[in-house]
Write a protein that binds this DNA or RNA. Structure first.
Length: 157
DNA sequence: GCCAACGTTGGC
DNA sequence: GCCAACGTTGGC
């Protein structure tokens, strides 16, 4: 099993938007970066991911999700009305993929970016590296363990 | 609102 | 295939 971190600006898509869905399941679509896409393709059912809110005053991890469907073509790439439309992506050779995630538990209070930066063992974490802009990032089991233990989060089964 | 970092585009 | 110009992301 692998671990990941999924970034989203809450004004675009938030944790609250996710848990509004039946069973807390929704598609993670709209990823338009090749490196991030390749990480989506690596995901397997049962993998876990942190849900991270970016682009706000105090960014941070707000929840935990499970991957419940592996990579499939992102329908938005063919939707001319979507801002995620890609005219260069054909049906025969889809360029972008989505996965489905399920909310497993909110992290309360959120684990903020400043809080993560204070932890020496996390110094080499991808998320904390300068210039990192990827919206999908791998997390090592060690990093996952350290971060998960910061709160007494109960996960649903 | 600024700016560093990085990805993408397009001319050559 | 190189690289300058431009666009986007995201922390501060």
């Amino acid at each position: 099993m692998k671990y990941w971190l999924l970034k989203s600006e809450p004004s675009t898509y938030s944790w609250e938007d996710l848990i509004k869905n039946e069973k807390g399941i929704d598609s993670w679509d709209g990823v338009r970066n090749y490196q991030a896409r390749n990480f989506l393709k690596e995901m397997a059912i049962g993998d876990m991911a942190f849900f991270y809110h970016s682009g706000i005053k105090i960014p941070g991890i707000v929840g935990i999700v499970k991957i419940v469907r592996e990579a499939y073509p992102d329908p938005l790439q063919w939707d001319v009305d979507s801002s995620y439309y890609d005219s260069k992506s054909s049906r025969e050779h889809p360029r972008w993929v989505a996965v489905d995630v399920q909310a497993m538990g909110a992290i309360s209070p959120p684990i903020t970016l400043p809080e993560l930066r204070e932890i020496p063992q996390l110094a080499s974490m991808q998320l904390l590296k300068k210039g990192n802009r990827l919206s999908v990032l791998p997390v090592t089991p060690e990093e996952w363990e350290i971060i998960f233990k910061l709160r007494s989060t109960k996960l649903e089964v």
